[in-house]
Amino acid sequence: MAMKKKRYALVIDSRKCLNCKACVVACKAENKVPVGHFRNRINEERKGEYPTLSINFEPEQCHHCDEPSCVRVCPTGASWQRKDGIVLVNYDECIGCRYCMIACPYDARYFNEEEGVVDKCTFCVQRVDKGEVPACVETCPSKVRVFGDLEDPKSRIRELLATRRYKVKEPQTGNGPQLYYLL
């Protein structure tokens, strides 16, 4: 049987984000992220003067771009992309030059000093390959993130993108980011 083409992506409803950090700790546990480093984070934008104020929270992690600049600049091929769109780092080939960190428009990568390699969100590939959703998606109290396959016309993310307005961040880079933020 021919394998059906897949394209994993995240749809993010930032308005529901409470900045509770559940996703960050779940990622830390699932992926053994060292203390002091994070594969995902919540960006905060605080505006206004008392009493006219606003706060926006926006989850951020690797955007698993269609044309990932990190993969383009990697001199050893350590940064690479699976057919289903997931961008990974092959740690054995990473020489720690950190070009990819500079190339990433989202500051989504960190340098693991202890291992001498660059690391980042993998969409919890170990879970996804078992048919599970990434840890950040599963643990979220307000279910901010929806994970799915864009090639599957019946997927929830396809439905959301068909019916809701959304944006991608830094589209001008030509990276083709695959984190879709609902408006």
Binding site: C20, A22, V25, A26, K28, A29, E138, T139, P141
Partner: peptide, 25 residues
Amino acid sequence: IRKLNPNPENPKSRDMLCARGNAAV
């Protein structure tokens, strides 16, 4: 203990585990 995941069977906890719950490890 490698990780704690939410248990969807409890309707009260709404299939989630917050930062504190995850940090119980």
